[in-house]
């Protein structure tokens, strides 16, 4: 019994240490500015305040960035998951020339570094007159999100028994009918987890946003918030921590309600870092 308690205390102290930076982020965001510079620092805030959140929403362009990120990530997710779902169906359940090498290519691009593609992509999008638009970012995000989504969905698809589709065909469905009636409902959990991962990847992306967008109209959260750090003369840590918390809100929602889908995604094909 004693050993069990000791082990639990040990385990939880490690867990809390790992989680401490996040706890500190939360605490800092609700401390008044003057309390930050107190010595010794207060672990829990003496006075709670949401002034930084108000300031973030009213005085800065945070909401604009947030909105850009929502549009950008949602569009990327819808486009990528739609293409990848039919693509994965084709890769797993059809036979044609070049199918194997295509699957190989998907894996290859899944591992490809962004910095290799970013230079020509930059040139291409500038020439197309798309720089500084959300569209340019959707196109750029496809480069990492599509191989990733394909790879995940391919393994989810392979997990659906082929007999189900065969049965539907014998029962009178066409290939696409069987896909719609039988495969899609079975694939739904996989689609949800792929969509979540794609959304999170897009939400967190930094490099493409940094290179391709240089105007507040299209700037997403990652570069937007970073700009707030760089451009301010006097760094307001509470404000930045409030921004960090707000930026993590979608993630917290996913964690609270849809965590099983994230774990499923891990099982299906590893996760992009």
């Amino acid at each position: 019994m004693l050993r069990k308690i000791a082990f639990n205390l040990f385990a939880w102290s490690i867990v809390l240490m790992v989680a401490f930076p996040l706890f500190w982020m939360l605490v800092t965001s609700v401390k008044p500015q003057f309390e930050l510079f107190r010595r010794p620092p207060t672990i829990l805030p003496e006075t709670w305040t949401f002034e930084h959140y108000w300031k973030l929403l009213s005085d800065t362009n945070f909401l604009g960035y947030f909105w850009n990120s929502v549009i950008l990530s949602t569009t990327t997710t819808i486009v990528v998951v739609a293409i990848a779902t039919v693509g994965a169906y084709s890769l797993v359940r059809f036979r044609y020339k070049g199918r194997e090498s295509l699957a190989f290519l998907v894996l290859f691009t899944y591992l490809l570094p962004s910095v290799v593609l970013i230079l020509p992509l930059y040139l291409m999008l500038v020439q197309l007159g798309l720089s500084n638009t959300i569209t340019s970012l959707v196109i750029a995000y496809t480069t990492f999100a599509l191989p990733y989504a394909l790879w995940l969905l391919r393994s989810f698809m392979a997990g659906i028994p082929e007999d189900l589709e065969s049965a539907a065909l014998v029962d009178g469905a066409s290939r696409l009918g069987a896909f719609w009636d039988i495969i899609l409902p079975q694939l739904l959990p996989g689609i949800i987890s792929t969509a979540l991962f794609t959304f999170i990847l897009s939400w967190n992306e930094y490099l493409y946003a940094l290179v391709l967008v240089n105007s507040d109209d299209a700037r997403p959260l990652t570069t937007g918030v970073m700009n707030m750090l760089i451009s301010s003369f006097n760094i307001e840590w509470s404000l930045l921590m409030a921004a960090s918390v707000m930026m993590s809100v979608p993630l917290i929602i996913v964690f609270a309600f849809l965590q099983s889908y994230l774990t499923r995604g891990f099982g299906a094909g590893g996760v992009k870092g």
């Binding site: 028994p161 007999d163 189900l164 065969s166 049965a167 539907a168 065909l169 014998v170 029962d171 009178g172 469905a173 066409s174 009636d181 039988i182 409902p185 079975q186």
Partner: peptide, 29 residues
């Protein structure tokens, strides 16, 4: 195509559609 051959098949794995009820399964063809 399989659906037009006037055949029915019973699979070793049964291949019942998991998201459909028994009634819907039987009604599908």
């Amino acid at each position: 195509p399989p659906g037009d051959r006037d055949i029915a098949m019973v699979f070793q794995s049964y291949a019942l559609y998991p998201h459909m009820s028994v009634g819907q399964n039987i009604a599908y063809p």
